[in-house]
């Protein structure tokens, strides 16, 4: 359950952003969580809602977008949208040319995408 420490880092960013933008309140928080980030969205959600109490985002809603795994093949240059990682056919290789020289371009991120704030 490392979601709580990630949520703590999230709130550090939220507080910074609130200060920079002069927000009186943060009403919505949207995060991107990669399928391969090791973060469980449900746990993240419950950590968020217990952490937010007494902060500037006290009443904020949380929106989580789970981003899928994507690869780029260095051999044929194709972008690959991967199958679900739990599928038995999942493979960290290019389905077009078979190359294993692939790079993960999406799926590990844990990002704060945007905030909805009230300035007055």
């Amino acid at each position: 359950m490392h979601e709580m420490s990630i949520v703590a880092d999230l709130f550090t960013i939220i507080e910074e952003q609130a200060q920079q933008t002069g927000a009186k309140k943060v009403t919505k928080v949207k995060v991107l969580i990669g399928e391969l980030s090791g973060v469980v969205p449900e746990l993240f959600r419950s950590a968020f809602h217990s952490y937010k109490k007494g902060t500037i985002a006290d009443k904020a809603k949380l929106e989580i977008k789970v981003t899928r795994i994507k690869f780029k093949c260095h051999n044929c240059g194709k972008e690959i949208k991967s199958k679900d990682i739990s599928s038995p056919d999942f493979s960290y290789a290019c389905p077009f040319c078979g190359s294993k020289e692939v790079e993960l371009t999406s799926g590990r991120e844990i990002y704060l995408e945007k905030l909805e704030i009230e300035t007055s």
Partner: peptide, 18 residues
Amino acid sequence: MEKSKKEVLVLEDILGSN
């Protein structure tokens, strides 16, 4: 902007500080 809600695009890595 003044009286209503406003959206702020952040796009920051939450694990950035780590």
